[in-house]
């Protein structure tokens, strides 16, 4: 198998699958344009074909020479690949993939439950909060075993819940979370720095620049957000 590793096959597989799926999808918009002979799909198809070609070329090269850099010495200064060894086994990838599903679960699952129970009014809010708490619980449980995967997931969870809970209620927890992932363990500096960063941001964006940030859709978070905005402006 030359110098090929499983990772290389997975890499090429991802590219080629992506090419195949996207190429098939181009038939969805394969429409004629009166003034343009090539239509809407020629350009994306050309890109997809070149991409498949490059993915195969890459695979052949990895088969011949493994991961060796054949580009220029610029890579020596910019390549992050050196760290790969620590987090590259299949178990790590699977656990990270699992963690990354949590934010997307929050975007879907509460809606399903609401539809299933045909809930209305404040019950919807309760369902969403309970879902959020359960998913955060799962996240914290798995966080300890895969800190890097958790670091990748945390911002996505933050983004997924922002619409409901709002920037003003969620950001302080997010700051503390990121500091924890980055290796800070002492509670006192964490809280003090979080308070400092949060107040700086509020001062700059809410008080001076009047940027409207999401206040959240769910009570009591909506009230907290609105209260912060009213006080500051």
């Amino acid at each position: 198998m030359g110098k090929l590793r499983i990772g290389h096959l997975v890499e090429a597989g991802i590219w080629l699958t992506l090419c195949l799926v996207l190429f098939i999808y181009t038939f969805e918009f394969d429409q004629e344009i009166e003034i343009y002979k090539y239509g809407a799909s020629a350009w994306p198809r050309a890109i997809i074909l070149l991409m498949a070609f490059a993915a195969i070329g890459q695979l052949i090269q990895q088969w011949q020479r493994g991961d060796e850099s054949t580009s220029n010495f610029i890579v020596a200064a910019t390549d992050d690949g050196a760290e790969e060894a620590h987090h590259s086994d299949l178990k790590w990838y699977l656990s990270t993939f699992g963690l990354l599903l949590i934010p997307f679960a929050y975007l879907r699952v509460p809606n399903w439950i609401v539809a299933l129970l045909s809930a209305e009014g404040s019950t919807v809010h309760v369902i969403r909060i309970v879902c959020a708490l359960i998913l955060i619980g799962i996240f914290i449980y798995y966080m300890r075993r895969n800190l890097l995967g958790a670091m990748l997931t945390l911002p996505l969870i933050f983004a997924a819940m922002l619409e409901d809970i709002g920037f003003y209620s969620l950001a302080p927890f997010f700051i503390v979370g990121v500091m924890f992932m980055m290796g800070e363990r002492k509670a006192k500096p964490m809280i003090m720095i979080a308070a400092l960063i949060f107040s700086l941001l509020m001062l700059l964006f809410v008080k001076i620049l009047y940027v409207g940030l999401p206040v959240g859709n769910i009570r009591p978070f909506y009230d907290i957000g609105s209260w912060v905005v009213t006080v500051l402006q």
Binding site: A54, G57, Q58, Q61, T70, S71, N72, I74, V75, T78
Partner: peptide
Amino acid sequence: VGARTFWK
């Protein structure tokens, strides 16, 4: 330039 290999 810029990536590890030309293909990348």
